Amino acid sequence: MGFHEIRFPLRVALGTSGGPERRTDIVSLSNGRETRNQRWARARRRYDAGSGIRSIEDLYAVLTFFEARAGRLHGFRFRDPVDFRSCPPGRTPQAGDQTLGTGDGARLRFSLRKTYGDAGGATQREITKPVAGSVLVAVDGRPVPAAEVSCDPATGMLEFAAGKAPAAGAIITAGFEFDVPVRFDTDRIDVDLAQFQAGRIPTIPLIEIRP
């Protein structure tokens, strides 16, 4: 198996349905109460690309993409139609959007991540497929020149240049766009043109690949 650094057809992705899935065990007790246990520390995203197909051309583009990935064998990039920035929809990413960590005067590498939270709690998501050229970085609110920091679009690892490690106690933040690493969750796509022209679209499941 492998991963192809290529994005799923964008015009189809914009109409795709799906989102995060979590796994929670719930046990109902005899007194009417219940206990809940979180089995997954992080959500895993699932999508149905079939809901984004609007024409025969879209269908052919997905079939071609499916064949190039050999079905479930190879992963690829997918742009979530709602959640693909370090900031809320409709805004432009800024260098202060997400906190990545605190400097110690020697550490050069930091992982991109996104925090989802409110007054009741928060969870963090590791970002491993940032969009190349979209990452903006700041240290204690001051933008870092591109010559002093780089980000690997294949891993989401941020690295400061030698001698440019953030000072002890300095807060590192970043803004970015990103894709979701996914694969097809099927080795078969059923196409019936008569049904398709009547409004019935095929189901094409995608599932997130966890790092």
Rank of each mutant, 00 (worst) to 15 (best):
L193P: 04
D185A: 15
R188D: 11
F184A: 14
D192H: 03
V135E: 06
P143N: 04
D140P: 11
G141K: 01
A170W: 00
V180P: 06
R142C: 13
A161G: 11
P143L: 09
V135T: 07
E148W: 12
F176E: 07
V137W: 03
D192S: 11
D140Q: 05
K164L: 13
P145D: 05
A174M: 02
A146N: 09
D187W: 05
V137I: 12
G175N: 01
P143S: 12
E159R: 11
P143F: 03
V137T: 13
P166F: 05
S150Y: 05
A138W: 00
T155D: 09
D192F: 04
A167C: 14
P181A: 10
G163R: 01
P145T: 11
A154V: 06
A146H: 09
D185G: 15
D190Q: 14
E159M: 10
I172D: 10
D190T: 13
T155W: 08
T155C: 08
P166M: 09
L193R: 06
D179S: 14
P181E: 03
I171L: 15
A170Q: 04
F176Q: 09
F176M: 08
G163N: 05
E148S: 15
G163E: 04
A162H: 12
A174H: 05
R142G: 14
D190L: 14
V191G: 12
P153F: 04
R142S: 15
I189L: 11
P145E: 02
S134V: 01
G175Y: 00
A167E: 14
A138Y: 00
G169Q: 02
P181Q: 04
D187N: 14
S134Y: 01
A170V: 04
